[in-house]
């Protein structure tokens, strides 16, 4: 089932001249890039570069002001989130969006499509069909919980999970869909170092074993360098450059984008360890 990574197929996602304005602020400015099928692609950039806005547009949470999005060769610009989900675009949130007063198991069971039990007539008149699908969904959710090492917490209310566990649950919700493109918005933010290693392994396994095409926004450079062959660097709403972590971190414009601009805090964006990890 796993696809060969680095295949030369047409890109799964093609973004052309994407623009989004909020009043006078242009958050995304004629941004163009593509995502290859079967690979893990990283998107980095200083705060305010437009990373999350691009995810929101691609996932349908925000309509673009201009530009075009082609998904698997089809124009899906401006489609709402729930329609894009059924096409196979699945995203996670930077701040975990759990269903707080549902159990962990229920959080996962909510996701799959084609649940006849989500309509009232089958619930009242065809309970057999509902129960059958419900068993499949539960089985899948339980497998996902084991993969995420959240099995012991299956009956806990999601609101009572720790920050890191909620991040795993976010990943789990993506796994419960039939994703053709997974957008992970800072999966590692606020996650402790031990769990971060585990999370990285999970993401790699999902790519290798299930052939998921994954795009990650991340600030942790070590983390992203260890996962992605190809990295897209954004600054001020547009693509600055792209390449491997090694080439990108040598690019003077990238260092400038992180350190320059005046308003940004001057922090060292690429710790020395990054070069070694690739």
């Amino acid at each position: 089932m796993a696809q060969q990574s680095g295949s030369r197929n047409p890109p799964v996602l093609q973004v052309d001249g994407l623009t989004r304005r909020f009043g006078g602020l242009t958050a995304v400015d004629r941004c163009s890039f593509h995502i290859d099928a079967g690979r893990i692609t990283g998107i980095i950039g200083p705060n305010g570069a437009g990373k999350s806005t691009i995810f929101n547009i691609v996932a349908g949470a925000l309509p673009p002001t201009g530009g075009r999005i082609l998904f698997e060769g089809e124009d899906v610009t401006g489609f709402p989130a729930h329609v894009l989900f059924h096409r196979g675009i699945v995203r996670t949130f930077q701040i975990p969006h759990e269903f707080g007063r549902l159990t962990v198991l229920e959080n996962l069971m909510t996701v799959p499509a084609a649940q006849p039990g989500e309509r009232l007539w089958p619930v009242w008149l065809a309970p057999g069909a509902v129960a059958r699908r419900e068993r499949e969904v539960r089985e899948r959710a339980e497998e996902t919980l084991e993969f995420l090492t959240l099995w012991e917490l299956r009956d806990a209310l999601a609101m009572n999970l720790s920050g890191g566990q909620k991040k795993l649950l976010e990943l789990g919700r993506a796994m419960m869909a039939e994703p053709r493109l997974v957008l992970l918005d800072e999966p590692g933010a606020g996650v402790n170092p031990t769990l971060l290693v585990k999370l990285g392994d999970m993401i790699r396994r999902l790519n290798r074993e299930r052939g998921y095409t994954i795009v990650i926004i991340e600030h942790d450079m070590d983390f992203i360098a260890s996962l992605c062959e190809r990295i897209i660097v954004l600054a001020e709403g547009a693509v600055l450059t792209e390449g491997t972590m090694t080439t990108v971190r040598r690019d003077a414009r990238v260092i400038d984008a992180y350190l320059g601009g005046g308003e940004e805090e001057a922090v060292e964006p690429f710790p020395a360890s990054v070069g070694r990890s690739t």
Binding site: A61, P80, A81, H82, F85, H86, E98, F99, G100, T110
Partner: peptide, 11 residues
């Protein structure tokens, strides 16, 4: 519990 997450789950 969370409208945006429900939308992101295709609902």
């Amino acid at each position: 519990e969370n409208e945006d997450a429900a939308r992101a789950a295709g609902k």
